[in-house]
Design a protein around this nucleic acid. Structure first.
Lengths: 347, 347
DNA sequence: TTCGTTTATGCAAGCGCTTGTACAACTTTT
DNA sequence: AAAAGTTGTACAAGCGCTTGCATAAACGAA
């Protein structure tokens, strides 16, 4: 047994000459405590430098003001921005945020889930790791009464869970249409692993747009990145651009790969956008400043973060009343046309 | 009083038919429990889906495995990368990370400090907000036995605190030398608020390099950004470039302002690097891909994050033995020469 | 004056875990 | 066979707070 280390409510109670329950109630602004007593207690607490122990409170009330955030990584603009906005929104509501990076590892996602459950977080906002294909760990959290909201990379396997997504199908469709409208006809597509719903949806959107335009979708023009890193993009660009029958446009799964694709095309002496159009998902802060500037699709990370927190807290607080209605919220994306796809002057 | 909600060690104890202390010890691999009993307990725990309540453990042991991270924001490459690496290193050591964004507000920094103290975090890694000039909140944390490590934006006012920094003076000196070596002579400098040690140091470095080179430092060529945002950079660039006596090089406090400076120069028809050299602190992921690519100074965010965590945990664990020796660790930066300062061909 | 109310405070149990100490059951020593 | 060690486990207090219930004080009404 450890000896007590810091000022606790017993010390405050002794200082004022009341009981600890009075101190506790005074500090929590309970109506039953007289204003005079409250003032005395608060003054004493301040004087002694008392800081309420949140652990004890949480243990006692069986609830914390903490939200766990599980994301693949933090060094991608979209994700760090998402976490930024989640933290911001959570702070407003008086919640703290525990950040967990899975590095796209399923094992780590599970480990973190256990940590968060052990910490008794009130809720979890998660973007699935690339590897994740089974979801018992999420079920486990729910069994423990922890609310979960999924963002961006979601799954249909988890029923009764609020999801915040963009319309991946539609977005990919429109991105493809944009290329077609610009006059590109031989369009390659760089996808993430289609086990992930979002990549599957995007691929379908691409294929549908091609089909409707009567353009051929060649199998060798559809490539799959593993981690969609810069290097991944370079490798794939290399493969695509060295095909005997070369595509004249590439739709990449994110902006990192878009940039590496453009860079690699230049190295090979292929002109962007004249000989190769490039569009990428996920706007990055500097997409506008590249030369050529990169056409990309802006995901509303701010709205996504805010909504995720808002819905999560709604659900956390819903227990009292009744059952919560789980929603799938689909947000709009924005295609930002820049030089990398401006084949027509009018572009 | 809330009723118990989840499986606890009493349930496990009942299942196995031993006391709760045996369960607790078995789960913690205490040597006094026989292997046979341990196995039974663990099996039962698994079977019942028992998850240890970390709150209760922390309350009981008076220590948590949580590190608080206080940073100005998360939507800057350097900081999100720093946090990324802190989280990564903390995970290795079995610690979770609570992330707090101050938005460069002193008030918020204090608020968060209180939250972290209330959460009884084991330690705190902090990068000061731009506004912060007094440090009682850090003293407060230390009085409560919470270890603190300062990173990047630090202060000399906090004695006996480990600090992880770059050599700001030297780095600015060398950056300035680089411009001079390239043949630029009329060099302007965009600084952050010099109340912040780091900006003051950098400014001194700049001035010293100029002095040693026998170049004049005009007061009107030294500008102060408020938040060093993109817009801030544009505003300052505009002021500088419209001076009757225009500088032919600008050393900016970060890469965001470097980019906005370049963009604005182009708008004004000023050629970079021919008519204007631009170098910026803080490498961004796309600095290399801009046209012109941006010369910048790489801060070792990975090493800084790792070291911060390592030193912090060393200090946390040092209490047992004796007093910990606080260190100031100064890390090397790297100047990455790119097109935006290549005045000489050889550059 | 007495009694029902209201108002303010205290008592004590409980949240789930850790841990110093006591103790029973064996094993070893003499 | 008794004393002295070894295990292995249980008991109970304690971490700091919340909270249902009891109780005391103060008040106006009867």
């Amino acid at each position: 047994m450890k000896k007590k280390t810091r000022i606790n409510i017993y010390d405050v109670a002794a200082e004022v000459g009341v009981s600890i329950s009075t101190v506790s109630r005074a500090l929590n602004d309970d109506a039953r405590i007289s204003p005079k007593t409250k003032a005395k207690v608060k003054a004493a607490a301040m004087k002694l430098g008392f800081q309420k122990n949140a652990l004890a409170t949480s243990l006692s009330t069986n609830q914390t003001k903490v939200i766990g955030v599980i994301v693949p990584q933090l060094n991608r603009e979209f994700l760090s921005s998402l976490v930024h906005n989640i933290e911001e929104a959570a702070f407003e509501k008086g919640y703290s945020v525990i950040v967990c990076q899975t590095n796209n590892s399923y094992e780590r996602e599970k480990t973190y889930m256990d940590t968060l459950i052990a910490s008794r977080v009130a809720g979890i906002v998660a973007t699935l790791s690339l590897e994740t294909e089974s979801f018992e760990h999420f079920e486990k959290a729910r069994e423990q009464g922890i609310k979960v909201v999924l963002v961006d990379r979601v799954t249909t396997s988890l029923k009764g869970t609020t999801k915040i997504v963009i319309d991946d199908y539609r977005t990919a469709f429109e991105g493809t249409r944009h290329l077609i409208d610009q006059g590109y006809t031989q369009i390659a597509y760089v996808s993430g692993p289609t086990k992930q719903l979002l990549y599957a949806d995007r691929l379908r959107g691409f294929q549908q747009a091609m089909k409707e335009a009567g353009l051929p979708v060649k199998q060798e023009w559809i490539k799959y990145g593993s981690n969609l890193s810069f290097a991944d993009g370079t490798r794939i660009a290399d493969e695509l651009l060295k095909l005997k029958e070369r595509p004249n446009a590439i739709f990449t799964a994110n902006n990192l790969t878009a940039i590496s694709t453009i860079a690699h095309a230049e190295e090979l002496g292929i002109k962007v956008p004249e000989q190769l159009g490039v569009i990428g998902f996920s706007e990055e802060p500097f997409s506008a400043f590249m030369k050529p500037s990169v056409t990309s699709i802006r995901q509303p990370s701010k709205a996504m973060g805010q909504l995720a927190v808002q819905k999560l807290i709604e659900e956390i607080n819903s227990d009292q009343n009744g059952s919560y209605i789980h929603q799938k919220v689909v947000l709009d994306t924005e295609l930002i046309c820049r030089d990398s796809t401006r084949l027509r002057k009018s572009g």
